[in-house]
Amino acid sequence: MSESLNPPLSYEASATTTHRHVATTLPPEVASCLKNSRFLHLATCDGMTPHIALMSYTFLASTPFGPYPTIIMTMNPSSRKTTHLMANPRVSLLVHDWVSHRPPTRANPGGSRDGSPPPAATRSSLASLLLNLNTSALSSISTTITGEARFLDPASEEETWCKDRHLENNTFEEEMSAFGQTQQPGQRRASLLIDDDVRVVTVRVREGRLADWKGGVKDWLVVQEGEESSTEPAVNGVIL
């Protein structure tokens, strides 16, 4: 493997704002990542203990209720993340657009090891093909988003509209058919069978950080026309 393709073992210094990008629209890589990814990681904290959950979500460039790009999620009212958000609405979201399966490690002449990823094993040509397809990067970037989660008022016009958009956007027909299983049109994941008491949560996509697999970092901020952008943005949730 050429040196240029080796994964980095060190990353760009990023304790402060890095290569800041300010615009009235999302960076194209961030918009593409949010449109293409199926899940995001939601990080919450109750003040002492952080918690991370894998979430289905819906990304919209804007809604009838606000001009900013918006992420919609639904939560069980008795879940840990809901309890955390009630106490502390600050969140960090991670969205990435590459698959997470690791390729096999190069052979270790000094012996075997049990770490991750495992060493290469003897496999059929079909298995090797499937593995290579699974480890192919779609774009090789990830983005973190910092902001505040907002619980929508139950039965409000905004909650009804966002719930409908979220349900429309999250079916698993493709996943079912890929495994040779039959499904009904519009069939949804069990996690999206929304009960009447489910809470609908939105996060305004306004600021975050873009990172690539080589360790490059760029902070970004979305502003509306005429909005002041001189204030230093938050980096990973911390005002510098």
Rank of each mutant, 00 (worst) to 15 (best):
P67L: 12
H101I: 08
Q224D: 07
E225F: 05
L210K: 10
L138P: 01
W220C: 01
T18C: 10
Y57I: 09
M1Y: 12
L210G: 09
A234G: 01
A13L: 11
A211V: 03
V238L: 12
L54E: 02
Y11F: 13
A234C: 06
G66E: 10
N169L: 10
S32G: 01
S229Y: 07
A211Q: 12
R80Q: 14
P27N: 02
N108D: 06
S116G: 01
A211R: 03
T70G: 12
G115H: 13
C45Q: 00
S156Y: 15
P119A: 08
P185F: 15
R90C: 01
D212N: 15
G180M: 09
L42W: 00
L60V: 11
K218D: 01
P233R: 14
L210S: 05
T182G: 09
Y68F: 08
H166C: 11
L193Q: 14
V238P: 00
P185V: 05
W161K: 04
S139W: 05
D195K: 15
G147N: 05
V205K: 12
V205M: 04
P28E: 14
R189I: 02
Q187W: 06
P28N: 13
Y11D: 01
W213V: 10
F151N: 10
N132E: 11
P27V: 02
Q187H: 08
T160M: 02
H41V: 01
E175T: 02
T135P: 01
S62M: 10
T182E: 03
T231D: 12
D212W: 11
V235I: 10
K35C: 03
S125Y: 05
I239P: 01
G216N: 12
S128H: 15
T18A: 04
F65T: 00
L167K: 04
A31T: 12
E173V: 14
D153P: 00
L210P: 13
R150L: 15
P64E: 00
T122A: 12
L126E: 15
M86K: 14
M176D: 04
P27Q: 08
D196P: 01
S124R: 09
L54Q: 14
E175H: 03
G180S: 07
L94M: 15
N108R: 05
P109A: 05
D97F: 08
D97G: 07
G180Q: 07
R188A: 13
L152S: 02
S142N: 14
V91W: 02
S142G: 12
R106E: 08
L34F: 14
P233E: 13
A23M: 04
P89Y: 10
L131N: 09
R199H: 07
A107R: 03
S229Q: 04
F59A: 11
S62F: 11
A127P: 11
G215L: 03
H166D: 06
L40G: 03
S78A: 09
A53D: 04
S128P: 03
F59H: 11
T16Q: 14
L9P: 00
I194W: 03
N88S: 09
L5Q: 08
V22N: 09
P27I: 06
R38P: 00
N36C: 08
T171D: 13
